[in-house]
């Protein structure tokens, strides 16, 4: 199983991973349209900064994922690729996964009509290499075999 490896040494705090994530999860997958015309998706990765340290952090797809344990209705589950993903059809926005996540990488999307939606890295199912990894200009994110 391949995951995104984070190399703090190389992160230059440019936020392009976040930009790429937003574009990849947008309707049009066009950078200008995603930011200017459409409802902007939430970036699944966050760049943390505390001078001189900076790093991009997103779901680690834990083996013993506490979010899956915490999910009350199985919305948070492991897909056929082995990655932890959320089923938007069943998620009711109880945020238990957020409480359980040791990395703080699950975000709240409260823009749905009825319930909120847990939003997290899905490792770009439509791509071979996740968008954030491809966008990183300094190889601070690499897609590697565990």
């Amino acid at each position: 199983m391949r995951i995104v490896k984070i190399r703090e040494d190389n992160c230059i705090f440019c936020h392009l991973c976040e930009v790429a994530c937003i574009v990849e999860h947008s309707q049009s997958k066009d950078i200008i349209k995603a930011f200017k015309r459409e409802e902007r998706p939430i970036a699944r990765c966050t760049v943390e900064f505390n001078y001189p340290i900076s790093l991009s952090i997103m779901c680690r797809h834990c083996d013993d994922a506490p979010c899956i344990e915490a999910c009350q209705n199985g919305s948070m589950h492991r897909d056929e690729r082995g990655y932890v993903v959320v089923n938007p059809q069943t998620c009711v926005g109880c945020w238990m996964c957020i409480m359980a996540c040791p990395y703080g990488v699950i975000k709240r999307d409260t823009r749905r009509e009825k319930w909120g939606l847990s939003t997290k890295c899905d490792l770009c199912p439509d791509r071979v290499i996740p968008a954030c990894v491809e966008a990183c200009p300094n190889e601070a994110l690499t897609f590697e075999e565990l």
């Binding site: 440019c14 936020h15 392009l16 930009v19 200008i32 200017k36």
Partner: peptide, 13 residues
């Protein structure tokens, strides 16, 4: 300005 998406990458860099 139309192409600028306010990602602030330039500001940080």
């Amino acid at each position: 300005d139309y192409r600028c998406i306010r990602c602030k990458a330039c500001v940080e860099q």
